[in-house]
Write a protein that binds this DNA or RNA. Sequence first.
RNA 1: GCCGAUGUAGCUCAGCUGGUAGAGCAACUGAUUCGUAAUCAGUAGGUCAGCGGUUCAAAUCCGCUCAUCGGCUCCA
Length: 676
Amino acid sequence: MSNATISIQLPDGSVREVARGTTPYDIALSISPRLAAAVVVARIRPLATTAVTATAADEPSEEAMYGAAVSGERLVDLAAPLTEDVALELLKENDEAALRVVRHSAAHVMATAILELFPEAKLGHGPATDSGFFYDIYRETPFTEADLAAIETRMAEVVARDEKFVREEESREAGLAEYQAKGEFMKVHFIERFTHAGETISLYRNGGFVDFCRGPHVPSTGRVKAFKLTSVAGAYWLGDEKNQQLQRVYGTAFFNGKDMEAHFKRLEEIKARDHRVLGRQLDLFSIQEVAGAGLIFWHPKGGLIRKTMEDWMREECIRRGYDMVFTPHIMRRELWKISGHDGFYGQNMYPPMELDDAEYRLKPMNCPGHILIYKNSPKSYRDLPARYAELGNVYRFERSGTMHGLLRVRGFTQDDAHIFCTPQQIEGEVAACIEFAESVLKTFGFEEFKVELSTWDPNDRKSYVGSEENWLFASGSLKKVLEAKGIPYREIPGEAAFYGPKIDIKLVDVLGRMWQLSTVQFDFNLPQRFELEYKGEDGELHRPVMVHRALFGSVERFFGVLIEHYAGAFPFWLAPVQVGLVPISEKHLEYAQRVKATLEAAGVRVELDTRNEKMNAKIRDFTLQKVPFVLILGDKESGSGSVSVRTRGKGDEGSVALESFLERTQALQAAKGVAL
RNA sequence: GCCGAUGUAGCUCAGCUGGUAGAGCAACUGAUUCGUAAUCAGUAGGUCAGCGGUUCAAAUCCGCUCAUCGGCUCCA
């Protein structure tokens, strides 16, 4: 191979020898002009093994954004001269990574528009996100809706100008000096943080706009074909609320208008299954302004679902060897001082209530209560493991902008349990917890979930309580259990609580969104603070190991997720009204009453619509309430003791004998399945 | 807590640049007695989130408070 040529390997395995400095665009053009027109960006992977370049120190979010891999694989501009032997992939308008490049380019287009309209604005960063892009802007006066519209209009002009994105390089020192002179404090920070002395920095220019940026971009602004600004929100510089507040202008961009339409349609669908919207439509729960933010009122129908969830959970706990306990909602402040919550968790607790005998505080956690039960009598190794479970109401004073329907509230119910055991019992207990968690998710209809193992950062010993031996042992047993069960997990060092490592289970709902619910956590702190003990076989006193575990996590949150997961169309066993009865006319009311009595005697939840409405209206209302079965009752049915069945999602299924319908409901009730 | 937006009947919303409120659905009453997603007519329903201010006059303008929404931050 001569020095003047390099080898380009294409995805089909073929290799081309081209002049050094040839660009991906040149290669696309040599393959076909249509390919050249459709290609957005190129992915290269150096073929030489030593080719791993110094991209490791780049900004983490950018890293995630472009998915840089260990092999030195990276995305480059189509106009980037190729200087080494590479495997080359030309990404067209059907590629996820290419879409992110379009979105990031759209962020540049937006920044261009903003600076043209508001020259005083200072730029932060403008990455692509999962659903679009944003750019952080510092400006004294906040942007208004009208500003957004103006920016969007100007963006369209920038796109129409079809300005080329040109990569330029200059010395880091020159770049820094320029940005410092212009007071671009954020750009200065980024250059200082992500580049090193002596390096060159890359700038991207389109028309009159230049931005310090790693790239890559689409070839020209004209390639940002479909975009829309969606909102503006506050964000702190570097995510620290002590810093100045920036304005984060959000938008989204797509390869074409059709994709964008589909995206907004999907947003509509998500909104239609929003648990806050369905909660009102289906009359499940409410939040009342007079009562206070973040406090949930469970209406009869929501309450019934909750009761079903809780009954199942209690039975399951008992079956699995837990003891159900109850502990008070308020306890003396002294207790919270011993547990440490009064100090390190104090800001999240409701303030103390001054009473005659002492100060009391509302409980934010159930652990101290369970510990007091454990401590109430001396324990021996024969008493372990002790598993105390409670559907405990806790109150946490969440900051006022953070509440969100059922998913983030101030008063909630944890299906909390604390297991006190010997170190030898740990593994078995953790395994049982994980199994239990799987059973919860499966029973409630979630097939997919992700597991995270949070461990400590061994380089930051002082941030964690407990001995190194304990930490290694506990993390090791958590890991062992996951591996023995063949559960894939992600380990996140440094994410553990200060008191112990934990396993979090995040479930994935029908829309692919993740929710953190179940958690299994070790605690080396509380047994020590409360001086928990048990007498071992050896006659000596030992300190038990403590495991916190919540599977629904919070009953409120789990319910919220359930509502969205099913879009309010709950499986038969959970549906608050399982069967709706529609008498065709008043003269069928009597038969309807008899059907109702028969079904109710068998434990079926029935609602009879006695209103003076046409049957069509009644069917419609039950359908909108997502009732699993609607039974139409007229002359034919009352004459033969049958019911005409209309099934949710299926429609009219014709008449069957009342007894056989009843059997069907009994089978569904027992199966707890989703299908009707 | 911070930035921005919003708050009108049970629900979804209209109400222009200030002249003390309107629709559809729901509710109630009556007529209708009906075969698989909305029968017709009538009635009733609102301290326009709350408090304060400007004004002859405030749903509308100003201030504060509360709540909600989208983010930041935080978290079950």
